[in-house]
């Protein structure tokens, strides 16, 4: 199971990095989002993949899954969600004002 997860995480990171290096702003935003998904999977894998028991059941439970990675991911997902939303709005606004979504043309120009 861990091996499969590692492969998936690797693929997600590869796709994300590929998209990050694109010229179009929309692709870059999707890239950050996909990399973030890869990271979330990484956290849950690193916490140890166990199944068959709830997160925490008192002190005498025979088995339990580590609840901490899940709490971490929940936080990370919320942060990433907010970030993607803000970035999309900003990109749209920038497109309206600057008239382009091509990163090559967003380089600083001396005249401004």
């Amino acid at each position: 199971m861990e091996t499969l997860m590692s492969v998936i995480i690797g693929v997600l990171f590869a796709i994300g990095v590929y998209l990050l290096l694109a010229k179009s702003l929309l692709r870059i935003i999707l890239g950050t989002s996909i990399i973030a998904h890869g990271t979330h999977l990484l956290i849950i894998t690193m916490g140890g993949l166990k199944s068959g028991a709830p997160a925490l059941l008192g002190k005498k439970a025979a088995a339990f899954t580590d609840p901490l990675p899940q709490a971490l991911i929940l936080t990370a997902i919320v942060i990433n969600f907010a970030l993607t939303a803000f970035l999309l709005v900003l990109a749209y606004r920038a497109y309206l004002t600057l008239g382009t979504d091509n990163m090559e043309q967003l380089r600083s120009s001396k005249n401004e």
Partner: peptide, 30 residues
């Protein structure tokens, strides 16, 4: 104009580093 342009770059650099931060935290936790 200049603010919008620079904010986009600033955000992209910082999200990338935040992602790496999470990756490092995950490794350390493991």
């Amino acid at each position: 104009r200049i603010q919008l342009r620079e904010t986009i770059k600033y955000i992209l650099v910082n999200t990338t580093s935040s992602t790496l931060f999470l990756v490092a935290i995950a490794y350390l936790y493991a």
